[in-house]
């Protein structure tokens, strides 16, 4: 089993008939994902990739029972698409779209508050549960069913760590990309919490990078919850040159957090094994599991 998706998860795709959506939906179908419908306003009643197209999320949910949606809507309409999914009370939204105005995401977060919906992304590669299904745009060639959960801020490093965990003979239970935008849905620490509660996950790999304070939140979570499984983290950008800054508000909101050194120290204090070498993450997890 996996987190967030099961073999029975029925999925719709918002923005279904676009070029990128068509390409990735075809791949998802061939991977065995239960994609059952598409949503494109004004194109209801048509058929695409042999699947029915609906005008609204509510209509697609009503007709097919799909409770998850993969969103491929262009940035100027993506927030409205997410809010439509939240108002239709879907369980899960995965938004791939890049370059959404951040104040639109503030509105989406307000809509998520108190709703039953979980949002992954935006600017996320999505969720992959090897052998079960794929809601996203990641490559699946190196993925194998296994018992390692990967919670990540970086799509490229997720591909890398998927390969490493497969090479190490471990495989993956689920990989989740929380998305690269400053304001997004599911946090890195919420993803880690799902893996902590997942009986099918024996070890958790957290992929972080400089900026923001999500890794610090993971550390804070692990201070309050003793982890019964090994957690290995990679924090990319240890040697990155400092960025130019505008004013003081950024530092004042995060309390000076955000550097790789600060994140690594927080994670190690919380009992996380931090891999310094990005090429040894899978190996580090294998050694941790053998202990």
């Amino acid at each position: 089993m996996a987190i967030l998706v099961t073999p029975d998860t029925k999925v719709m795709c918002q923005g279904f008939t676009g070029r990128a959506a068509t390409f990735h939906c075809a791949r998802m179908l061939s991977y065995g994902t239960k994609l059952v419908a598409g949503v494109v306003p004004g194109k209801g009643g048509r058929s695409h990739l042999d699947l029915p197209v609906f005008d609204t999320v509510a209509a697609a949910k009503e007709a097919t029972g799909a409770a998850a949606s993969l969103i491929f809507v262009p940035p100027e309409h993506a927030a409205a698409a997410m809010i439509e999914g939240i108002e239709a009370e879907l369980d899960l939204l995965v938004c791939v779209t890049e370059r959404i105005p951040v104040l639109d995401m503030v509105r989406v977060r307000q809509a998520l508050n108190g709703s039953k919906t979980r949002l992954i992304g935006p600017n996320s590669q999505g969720i992959l549960a090897p052998g079960i299904g794929q809601l996203g745009v990641m490559s699946t060639v190196d993925a194998r069913p296994g018992r390692i959960g990967i919670a990540s801020r970086s799509a490229s490093l997720t591909s890398e760590v998927v390969l490493q965990t497969t090479t190490a003979g471990l495989g993956q239970s689920t990989t989740v990309g929380v998305g690269g935008d400053p304001v997004h849905g599911l946090s890195l620490s919420a993803a880690v919490e799902l893996f902590l509660d997942d009986p099918a996950t024996d070890g958790i790999i957290v992929i972080g990078e400089i900026g923001g304070n999500e890794e610090e939140e993971v550390a804070a979570l692990l201070q309050t919850r003793q982890a019964a499984k090994p957690i290995v983290a990679l924090v990319a950008g240890r040697h990155a040159p400092p960025e130019r800054r505008m004013g003081h508000a950024g530092a004042l909101t995060t309390g000076g957090r955000g550097s790789a050194a600060h994140k690594i120290a927080a994670l190690e204090t919380a009992g996380v094994i931090v891999a310094r070498d990005a090429s040894r993450v899978g190996q580090t997890m294998r050694e941790a599991l053998a202990r």
């Binding site: 990540s152 801020r153 970086s154 799509a155 490229s156 490093l157 997720t158 591909s159 890398e160 690269g180 992929i207 990078e209 400089i210 990679l234 990319a236 950008g237 240890r238 040697h239 990155a240 040159p241 310094r276 070498d277 990005a278 090429s279």
Partner: peptide
């Protein structure tokens, strides 16, 4: 552009940061 000698060609920001770390290491 940075000040060093190793030209790095990478796809993806996370992998690029990790590659930068490996070169410095």
């Amino acid at each position: 552009k940075l000040e060093g000698e190793i030209g790095c060609v990478v796809n993806g920001a996370g992998l690029a940061l990790a590659t930068h770390d490996l070169v410095v290491d």
